[in-house]
Each structure stands twice: as structure tokens, then as C-alpha cells.
Design a protein around this nucleic acid. Structure first.
Lengths: 383, 383
DNA sequence: TTGTATGCGTTATCAG
DNA sequence: CTGATAACGCATACAA
């Protein structure tokens, strides 16, 4: 019944505990069971003391058994194991943390949990960390820096052993918070300069550059750009990629074709609405993320326009359903698996102490996935 | 700079701390600062003792100030507040938990974090709980009961104050785990019978019944059903709704039209593949959740079939992009906001002690959203 | 190999 | 209104 478990707690306690489950245990070996002593507690949760008393051994032996830190005789192991089951003992992480200084918990904040990109990364990070024996405390800042800072503060207070941050943005508080902690921190998705911590990010400039070049190659000259938050590295770098592509093609950018958004669907809707009702409207739209493109598609639909007939659309971030519904969206996919795994590994390495003193910044490449949402711009047909 | 914060820690400490930030603080009030005493610690993190020494007050006063548990004179508040800032003190949650028995942390497990339905619920729950001063520890069991049990165990060990579980399924271990804890538990999405805990679920039978009736009304007689995990309440109840609708219409169900899945995209793909390559294939497909419908749509595409031309498709769970891409999917939307809010409230009420002794089970209604993925069955045309 | 004593940082009780 | 002191449950030297 207890089985091997899903490898979850592989290197946590109970390792040897698992090895000798069951097996007719001699209940006659119990000592007197001095009930007077340990019954003075407030909460009903059984403690190691209870286990020790029930098993008729000392508390140190119980601890040694649970942590596998010392050799305990087979007979006592049996007694302790039986006592644990009998009284339903569960170890107290608070006490353990207080003593050891570690919680085996990692804090993770992302800018928006509803964004499939973050969801994927979270799932991977979670998996790797769980496998290594860490729990994950997840927060979504919903693209709100103040909320994010509060969450980081809360996580730090909860004594997490380390932090993975997918920042909503960077303000002075964020910086101060990260700088002031000695816990290892790794940034994902959005870089924050000058923090001196590990990071796993995308080469956003190159990613968008390639996508825009593709659009350019199709013949588009007026390409609307729905930008992410200006204060974020991703917002900034992606816009840079757009500008660079235009510059490379010798096109003087029309500032009216760039709209600010904050990576949320509603922003994409508004931006696309504005863009597509321009006197001279763009023939293509590029959205700096996946959520905004949904808003953009909604705007296009509300305007009675068709994609790619009236306007080509492409965006950053792939999503699972992008290739089964139409228009099948052309996207730049991020290597979510690698991002999650690398971020977790970076943190685990810092925790283990086997990492170089200088911060490691991993820059991954995106992959342009060409589907059917982009076409050559057509001269406006009749009606 | 410190500001009001996002209401996050409203009723946690530092309440009064916030009120008197800044204001030229007299540094000359410091006592001798006896450095000999508190410097014997192992980790470098400053403690309340350090604060007390720096501020020249007793540790009890510091605690009283931080928790607002007693009236502290204005002058001492200033000194303490200054000391806290000066040495960068952060309170130690482990010690606090050990003492108080509460962690102000809630454990939350869902069957699949990549499912937009759960993501939405998680976001809401998180928000409500954060506002109430609780952190959330999130786990995704990835539809794996063993993993789920391990996570519950881990959460309980971490001393969470309560648990919200969106079960992957129910085995004996799950039941035992939930029964053995005294912490409040609330189930979401999938009911587990006989546990005697609060729950927020959908009336799944009615939801699917309505959807199938709609399909029936369109004229469909052979409706393929892609089922969720048989061991789950949602899997079971939804299938029941399907069967009931058929029975009501006087149709004898064809067992070959029902395929088992485990709520994952790949299952939907396989099931739809099987269903749509049947000698006498169904004219409509209903998927028991959103992830499987993506797989089903992929299968339909791979088969070169069109929707709703060749086959009508509908499913449980709405998603944000369902109405902007084609085919615009007809779905049964769950009241995610209500589910999240109710689940959080139920738990908060239990925690506050103002809840009736008997378990509360909230059953919410789904809403059929008719879009364009379903049409009347057509007699097979030429080609 | 097993038991005893001490302290981790807080909170809470009780005197002053 | 403030200060000393005893738990909270566990880990760990150290003693046996």
C-alpha cells in the first residue's frame, strides 16, 4: 500500500521506513507507556516524543531512524515503525526547519498563471523540484509589480530555500528584496539587469526579428506591433527586434503602428482595435505574447475582418491548440521544457553549492513555427 | 515606498508598522548594543533578539509591536521600526509556526495545472486566499493518484493550515490521508464520497445532459462520447448525463461509441481517432473535458475531416480562445470564479471556526454556450 | 547502538 | 506599558 511512491520523496526521510513496512510486529515489546509525561501538549498532533514513548525508545533514536542519520537496530526500527503507524505520526516541518534552517520549499512567482507559457514552465519546474525533494510555493503576480513584491516578501518570510521569479516587472522594491536576501534566486523569462543572479531567458530580440523578417518576406510593409509592458525586458527586447527587422529592411518605422500593452488579453483587443481602424491600416499584426493575440483575434472578428485574408497575424509564444483551430497561428515557440528544467537545475545547483560564484545567464533561442495565419498582403479587393 | 501593499497582508503583522514608516528617527536613543550576546548564531539572518538589542528594548516588546498584540509606546515603536530597517530583520515563519501551530499557508492540489479550467480556479483561489493573508502551496498531480497522495502527504507535513484538493482520483490512500488529518479540507471539481468534507462541484450530470440534448435536438443520433477517467466523480457523472440524455430520447446506447480517456489531450486524440474510423462513424462527438477536445480536433484534422461539416463537436469546459478561432467550439462553461471563491470561502470559514459541523457540498450549474461547432447531421454528400 | 541535554526564533504568561 | 522566562517539536553533540 505504501509502495515506492512516485519518486517524489526520494531523498527525503522515511527512506528506510519504506523498506520494512508490514511484517507481523511484536506488540508485546512495549514498555510501560508512561502516559503522564507527553500529554500536556496543546494541539493533538502526535510528536516524536509520543512515538518514542509508544515504541519505548528515546526520542533521539526515533529521529535517527527517521532521518537515517545513525544505525538503529532492527528490532527498534520495527518498534518505531509500528509506533509511527499506530499513532499516525507525521513530522513537523516547522520544528525541523527551525532547527535545520532549511524548509525544502522553493518559492515561485510568475507574471500570470493563466498564461499557458507560464503554466508549462511551472509544471516543469514543479516536476523537477518535486523529484529533488522540494515543494513549490507558487504565486501569480498578475502582471502587478506591487503584488509581486508583496509575494516575494511573503515567500522570503516563509523561509523558502530559494526563489524562482518570472517578474511582472522591476521596481526598486523588487531589486532591494532580491539583493537583500542570501537565498539563491533565479530569474525566468524576464531579465532584471544588475541583480547578479542566475537567469534563464529567451533571445527575444532575435525571436521577434525572425518573425518580422518572415512577415517582411511575405511582402508586408505596414506591420502593426502590439507591445508588451515597456518596463520589462521582454517588452523592451521584443520591440527592439521589431524595430531592427524594419531597419534592416530599410523601412522607416511608423510610430503609430506600435501600441503598448501589458501582456493581457484586454490590451491586445484594444491595441488591435486601434490599429485596424487606422485610416491606413496595417496588413499584418504581431503580438508580443499569446494572451494579447487572443484579444487581437477577437478585435479582428468584431471588426468583421478575416485572417489572413484582411490581415496576417503572428505572435510570440506557442500554445497547444494553435495548430488545430483556424486560423492556425504562426508563432514563435519558446523552449518551455528547457526553460523550466534549466531554471530548476540552476537553483538546485546553487542550493547544493556546486555553482560558480558568478551569476549564470542562459539565453535560449525561440523557434518560428509557420502555420497559416500569415499570407502575402493583398491589394484591397472590391468590398 | 512601503505603501499600503496590495492588501495582501491586510490582517497579518506589520499593520501598525506600516503606519509610521519614515519620519526622522532619533538614532541617538540606542543603548550600548551589547554585541557579545546575539552573535553566537549559525545563520546570518537577524532575529528578534537582534532587533531588541539594536533598539535597546526587550524582545517581548519587539514581538508585541510586530504583532500589535499589546500597546507599545510611540517612542519605542520608532526605535524598533528603525532597528528593523537597519538590520534588515525579517520574521521567521518556522519559529512562528512552531509556536502558534499555524502556518498561514494553504495547500492546493489540482489534477492538471495545464488545464485552463484549473488554472482559472487556481488564480481565483490564490487571490482570495492571499487577500486573507494566506500563502498558497500549489501542486499539480498530473492526473496521477500516486503523485497526488504523495503531494497531500508532503503538504500535510509542511503543516499547511488547510487543504483544497482537486483530486486526480480517489484511492484508499487518499481517503486515509484526508480522514486522518484534522486540518480542514475542501474538495473541488471532483467529489470523493464519504469523506465528510466540504466540496464545491458542478452538477456534471445535468451539464452533459443538456449538451447532449442540444446535439440530439440538432438531429444527431450517433453521438460519440470521449469519457474522462472512470474512477473520478466527474468522469462518472458526465458519462451518466450522456447516457441519461440518450435514454430520455429513447435511443439504445451503442457501447462502441463511448471511449475512455483520462482527461488528457493524447487520450482525446486516440479516442477520436478510434471513433471517427468506425465503419459507421458518429455524426457528433462530445468530449468530457477541454484538453481532450484539443486532441479530438487534432484527430479530426489529421483524418481530413471538417467540423462541423463532417462531425459536430462539443465539450465540457470553456476556454478563453474558444470563441475567436474556428470552429468556434460549443462548450459547457463552468462557473470558475464562483468555484474558486466558494472553495476559498468554505476553507476560510472552517479555519475561522464559523462553519456548521456538517460538511457543506455546493453544487453549481454549468452553462451551455452554443457556438458554431455543431450543426445538423448531413447525409454523406458525394466525395 | 542508544539516551540526555541544549538550542533554533517565536509567542505567551506573568510579574513589575 | 515593559521585561524575564517557559514552551513549541525536532536535531545533534555528547555521554553512556
Amino acid at each position: 500500500m505504501v509502495g515506492k511512491g512516485p519518486g517524489f520523496t526520494r531523498n527525503t526521510c522515511f527512506g528506510r521506513y519504506l523498506t520494512l513496512v508490514l511484517g507481523a510486529i511484536g506488540f508485546e515489546t512495549f514498555r510501560e507507556m508512561d502516559l503522564s509525561k507527553p500529554r500536556g501538549r496543546k494541539s493533538g498532533a502526535p510528536t516524536m516524543i509520543d512515538v518514542a514513548h509508544t515504541a519505548g525508545v528515546s526520542i533521539a533514536t526515533v529521529s535517527a531512524f527517521i532521518n537515517g542519520s545513525a544505525n538503529v537496530s532492527a528490532e527498534l526500527m520495527l518498534r518505531i515503525e509500528s509506533a509511527i503507524r499506530e499513532i499516525g505520526y507525521r513530522r513537523n516541518a516547522a520544528a525541523r526547519s527551525l532547527k535545520t534552517g532549511a524548509t525544502h520549499t522553493i518559492g515561485l512567482t510568475v507574471a500570470d498563471i493563466r498564461n499557458p507559457f507560464f503554466t508549462d514552465v511551472v509544471a516543469i519546474v514543479q516536476d523537477v523540484l518535486n523529484r529533488a525533494g522540494f515543494a513549490v510555493m507558487l504565486c501569480s503576480s498578475d502582471e502587478d509589480t506591487a503584488k509581486q513584491d508583496e509575494q516575494i516578501r511573503l515567500l522570503l518570510e516563509r523561509m523558502v530555500d530559494g526563489l524562482i521569479i518570472g517578474p511582472a516587472g522591476e521596481d526598486e522594491v523588487t531589486r532591494r528584496l532580491v539583493r537583500s536576501t542570501r537565498k539563491p534566486v533565479v530569474l525566468i523569462d524576464r531579465m532584471i539587469a544588475g541583480l547578479g543572479v542566475d537567469a534563464v531567458v529567451l533571445d527575444n530580440r532575435a525571436a521577434v526579428l525572425e518573425a518580422i523578417q518572415y512577415l517582411l518576406g511575405l511582402g508586408h510593409r505596414r506591420i502593426g506591433y502590439i507591445s508588451g509592458a515597456a518596463g520589462t525586458a521582454t517588452g523592451h527586447d521584443r520591440l527592439e527586434g521589431y524595430r531592427a527587422a524594419l531597419a534592416n529592411a530599410g523601412i522607416t518605422p511608423d510610430p503609430g503602428l506600435v501600441r503598448d500593452g501589458r501582456f493581457r488579453e484586454a490590451d491586445g483587443y484594444r491595441a488591435a482595435m486601434e490599429l485596424m481602424t487606422l485610416p491606413e491600416r496595417p496588413t499584418a499584426l504581431f503580438s508580443a505574447n499569446n494572451l494579447m493575440v487572443i484579444g487581437a483575434m477577437r478585435a479582428i472578428r468584431d471588426l468583421g475582418l478575416s485572417c489572413p485574408g484582411d490581415v496576417s497575424v503572428a505572435c510570440m509564444d506557442d500554445f497547444p491548440w494553435a495548430d488545430v483551430f483556424s486560423p492556425r497561428l504562426t508563432t514563435v515557440a519558446q523552449p518551455v521544457k528547457a526553460i523550466g528544467e534549466q531554471a530548476a537545475s540552476l537553483l538546485l545547483n546553487r542550493l547544493a553549492g556546486n555553482a560558480p560564484p558568478e551569476p549564470l545567464v542562459l539565453t535560449l533561442r525561440g523557434q518560428l513555427i509557420i502555420r497559416s495565419s500569415c499570407a502575402a498582403p493583398t491589394v484591397r479587393q472590391s468590398a
